[in-house]
């Protein structure tokens, strides 16, 4: 399996602050990569650099063999890379169905086709009963699902999920875990930021740990759990 995404020496500076410095790793097609690290480690910044939201200050982001630096987010999405937002961003005054249709319209000009795709995706996340509700009125758990349905409707090959389980109760988290594993079965590569260690260990094929903007470790979940540097970063060196 080839690499669908290559991060090569990516750095991002805000003024003098390095939010990411010299981060490199590769993401093989079809797998789930977990991206973890303490608060402020630069996980979301890295997502922003990958999806074109910020241009990286240094380094390269290569998606399907193509250099992505400087491409706008909409072009990135068209090329098959889609992301969700840590703080959900529902299109509040539009219906749940319309939200997902906006995603689907990325691949079609026909409203009818988009509606069919959207209904199908809503079934996948089990929100089809709420298709006509206003997105702004959904509780947090359903907003997160809507976020996933909306990006899936853009038909991505690579999906970047930014804390889709944040703020959810255990039952809702379990639903999302099953959803992520289902998405994997469809051959979609995923990169997942998550704070829930149990969940991330269960779903990830490989994990990258960031700390203070730098890559601290990379490996299988078992290797990461056993890594002394990672344990120190999370719990402090005394333990």
């Amino acid at each position: 399996m080839g690499a669908i995404l290559e991060i090569k020496h990516v750095s991002k500076f805000f003024g003098g602050l390095a939010a990411n410095s010299d981060v490199s790793f590769e993401l093989a097609e079809g797998m789930i990569m977990g991206l973890i690290g303490p608060n402020g480690a630069g996980k979301t910044t890295l997502f922003n650099c990958i999806t074109g939201y910020y241009p990286p200050s240094r380094g390269e982001v290569i998606f399907k063999g193509r250099k992505m630096n400087g491409l706008e987010p909409n072009k990135v999405c068209k090329l098959g890379m889609a992301r969700t937002w840590q703080k959900v961003r529902p299109l509040a005054k539009m219906s749940v169905l319309d939200n997902v249709m906006v995603g689907a319209l990325c691949r079609t000009n026909s409203l009818k086709v988009a509606r069919d795709i959207a209904l199908e995706q809503l079934k996948v996340v089990r929100l089809d009963r709420k298709a006509d509700f206003l997105a702004g009125g959904l509780p947090i758990g359903e907003r997160k699902k809507l976020e996933v349905a909306r990006v899936l409707a853009t038909r991505p090959q690579l999906l970047l999920l930014d804390e889709v389980m944040g703020g959810l109760n255990p039952a809702e988290s379990e639903e999302i875990i099953q959803l992520i594993l289902d998405i994997k079965k469809h051959g979609i590569t995923q990169m997942v930021i998550e704070h829930d260690m149990k969940a991330i260990m269960r779903i990830s094929d490989r994990i990258v740990v960031l700390n203070s903007g730098e890559k601290l470790a990379e490996g299988s979940p078992e290797e990461i759990v056993a890594n002394q540097a990672v344990v120190e970063a999370y719990l402090g060196s005394e333990h």
Binding site: Y53, A82, W85, M94, V102, L111, T154
Partner: peptide, 26 residues
């Protein structure tokens, strides 16, 4: 309102950044 354009316009109104990430050229 009943076209792709209308959907994209409203998406931009509701959240520019979300719209941008969904493939909409702002």
């Amino acid at each position: 309102q009943h076209s792709k354009l209308g959907y994209y316009f409203q998406a931009i109104r509701e959240d520019q950044d979300a719209a941008h990430a969904l493939g909409i050229s702002l």
